[in-house]
Design a protein around this nucleic acid. Structure first.
Lengths: 204, 204
DNA sequence: CCTCCAGTTGGACGAACGTCCAAGTGAGGA
DNA sequence: TCCTCACTTGGACGTTCGTCCAACTGGAGG
């Protein structure tokens, strides 16, 4: 690793941390395991970060900054009603979860680590803020694509959606019941659709 | 700890483990920390359990066996509509979460630990089975108390409810936004109520 | 009262941990 | 070409970890 910019080193170490946590869990994410994953000497960690804790914090930030909600616009253009669009999008997340459970598990482990550090802090602007924003954009896009509009503020609905997706994740990790997870995602889609004004009642 | 039945020892160690995880997190739940919490000598751990891992497994089982949903029947008898009853019950959980976040965080940490161990296992009957059953009973009790009946199977609805409560928990742990958590609980209550037949349409 | 042994204990052991620092290294200026 | 020094490295240090086992203990049976 001769002569590599510090920022690049930090990014590589963060990526290695995510890989190790995904493979071995947060308990297996030791300094040696991480630098080994990154192909770096042991000293590189404390050269790029002040401590292992700081690296873990950076990794947690990278996860929350990353857009967890894989929200590609539907390939088939005209999908149907708002409820259909929501159903499809949420089902896509459940499929992603069932395909890569270790990744979601790693995200949750890092999130709980950060949550414990913040337990005593008074309020906090929220680590999920970016997730909420992304989800709100998704909801608005879905409404726009189906000629619908939301009857409730999208940021509130977005938080409900993100929370429920988190719950779908933890619950699936507990019982590995993919059909049931899909059912819950449909439950969520229907619940969200209830907060939209149907196309007939539009142009008010 | 002279002359104590092994089962009682095991139970005491499990209780101590839960206390340590709640206070210091799963990372701080070392063998020495646990036996210290229990007021036992170090050797007592491997006398009652084959390994620390086995003790952690037992602790995780104790949590999932325990009824997490604090579901006391509403003290005021006549509460109102089904949606009102659900709202009250779910709000009670959010209050409990906001009052004792470390406990819920500990539960989640233990649950994720067990989830990682089960990652490769094919399906599994589900760790949450007891939670689902308790929640299903609650839903049925709420319907019975308000003269309503469910249009969907209560075990499916129960899983949706448990999943969403998990999501409310993780999301609150991330942003500490109690009013928003209450809003999500109301969102869930309304969504559940949509799957019930209103009293007017009864006696079919 | 003594013996005995199932039950209990605390120290020992090797491994792995996070952190630090003195030695090494190689590109750029003289 | 050689010197220099900022950057990089890997080994050393003290701590803590999980596990094991030889020594201890105290109530029951003779």
């Amino acid at each position: 690793m001769s002569r590599m910019p510090v920022d690049e080193r930090r990014a590589a170490l963060v990526a290695a941390t995510l890989a190790v946590v995904e493979r071995d869990g947060i308990a297996g994410a030791s300094a040696r395991a991480i630098v080994n994953e990154a192909g770096m000497p042991l000293g590189a960690l404390h050269y790029a970060f002040t401590s292992l804790d700081a690296l873990m914090d950076a990794a947690a930030d990278a996860v929350t900054d990353q857009e967890r909600i894989a929200a590609e616009p539907p390939p088939g253009a005209a999908a149907g009603s708002l409820a259909d669009v929501l159903r499809e999008g949420l089902a896509a997340y459940v499929d992603l979860l069932a395909a890569h459970p270790a990744r979601e598990l790693a995200f949750l482990e890092l999130m709980l680590r950060a949550a414990r550090a913040r337990l005593d802090l008074p309020a906090g602007p929220g680590r999920h803020a970016r997730s909420y924003a992304v989800m709100a954009e998704l909801l608005e896009a879905a409404a726009a694509a189906t000629g619908t509009r939301w009857a409730s503020p999208t940021d509130a609905l977005a938080r409900h959606a993100v929370a429920t997706l988190d719950g779908i994740t933890t619950t699936w990790l507990a019982d590995h019941d993919t059909p049931a997870a899909h059912a819950t995602s449909r439950f969520l889609a229907a619940a969200l659709a209830h907060h939209a004004v149907p196309p007939a009642d539009q142009e008010a």
